[in-house]
Design a protein around this nucleic acid. Structure first.
Lengths: 233, 233
DNA sequence: GAAAATACTTGCCCAGAGTGCAAACATGCA
DNA sequence: TGCATGTTTGCACTCTGGGCAAGTATTTTC
């Protein structure tokens, strides 16, 4: 309808993201959404392992074949929820000033996750999928993928401040540990609060994330592990 | 043939492991071995993704159906190699004195992995499977499984020295970080030495494992990351 | 040491996963 | 409008994974 939507669309397609999304992009995004929604619905109503790709496709109003154009498996469709969640953290991390200590950046990025809109889908996925090994495997993959991305982000940042080569061991060990600690905080939170989304529960999550980064920053100071540690051991 | 194999066998079956393994146990162990060997062979000769469960079964001299009595998938069969590898580390960890600082125990356990016989199968698996996403997923699972076990081992240990409740966050964050650092060391080693098994290469691996534990113990002290840290840059 | 109990293997069968291909359809661009 | 390019779909096919029941090996009992 608009006289010249084309150039804008072309630009959007050519460059990365910004600009006006084309019709095709909108369609794809909508289909993607429809699929994950349908998958989550089925997970809720039938429980893990009790529905097929065909069921999801039907519910999403597409063909089985098209489902596979978007995701490689039921679990992948569900894991996209976790991917989105972790991408949020990653974005936050990238926004932090380059001069900041890296653990501080990580802490800040992780704390952003303790937000109702952000954590809700993951909390639900977690509580529904707890028992299913297939699902857990996909979750692991999501966390691992995030680790890789943090490594890249951290490498870029260091490349700015330090000349010469970056210490790969430092990078990978740090990124892996940060993610592990984030995961640990989430696990403890789920175990303790059952994925509750009340403000109190979220503030517990926030504190757990902060504490886990604190532990990491202090080298897991050999305090008696029964002492939660905020002040001296 | 022997006059009374039965009582011994019964005892072996009844109790956990020790004692004389029964015929059945030997057969099962042999089949298991045959499967993983066959799978590794096929991985070597045809490359990842280019052989089926049926191929493995044929090569191992069993039926396809029997394969599935042992492993749920091709990847699971291959991942058993990694499981064995990580179990070695876990055993070492459990053998450490309870009073020792936990990071020191972890360091000691991980260093044991830098042994030709232990690391060889994993090194091969790693170099062959690098590209295959299915395989990597199974590897992730193995590391995660090991993390869970370390958590259990550490919890037990703390239960001895500390009264009262154990801090779950501390436990999970620590175990996760230790494993992540071990993984990081392995990754860097593979990238640098390509899974070489020469003494020099193994000594590099050993040092990487030690260094990664050092980083963890120092809270990733905010040194310039380009400085590999043993002495000053 | 033979028969009964138990564990393991195998073949058969079936539902579902995942993928290549080509025809139909939608969108973008001139 | 009409061509180029991207997306969806149906179809056919191979492979996975697992239930079941009959067959075979091992262990236990008498």
């Amino acid at each position: 309808m608009s006289p010249s939507p084309s150039p804008a669309a072309a630009q959007a397609a050519a460059s990365g993201d910004p600009g006006v999304p084309s019709r095709r992009e909108l369609n794809k995004a909508a289909t993607r959404q429809a699929i994950t929604h349908a998958a989550m619905d089925l997970l809720r109503t039938r429980g893990p392992g009790n529905f097929t790709v065909e069921d999801i496709a039907d519910a999403a109003g597409i063909s089985r074949r098209t489902f596979f154009n978007y995701f490689g498996s039921t679990e992948a469709a569900l894991a996209s929820v976790t991917f989105g969640f972790l991408d949020t953290a990653l974005q936050q991390f990238r926004l932090r000033p380059a001069g900041e200590p890296i653990l501080e950046s990580a802490r800040a990025a992780l704390v952003e996750l303790a937000d109702p809109m952000t954590v809700a889908p993951v909390a639900e996925l977690y509580s529904l999928g707890q028992t299913n090994p297939q699902l857990s495997r996909s979750e692991l993959e999501a966390w691992d993928h995030c680790t890789e991305q943090i490594i890249d982000a951290a490498r870029e940042r260091f490349a700015l401040t330090a000349a010469g080569d970056v210490d790969e061991l430092y990078l990978r060990a740090l990124a892996g540990s940060v993610i592990s600690c984030g995961k640990a905080a989430m696990d403890v939170w789920f175990a303790r609060c059952g994925g509750d989304l009340t403000p109190e529960s979220l503030s517990i999550l926030r504190q757990l994330l902060i504490d886990s980064m604190g532990l990491l920053g202090s080298g897991f100071a050999s305090h008696s592990p029964a002492t939660p540690s905020p002040d001296r051991h």
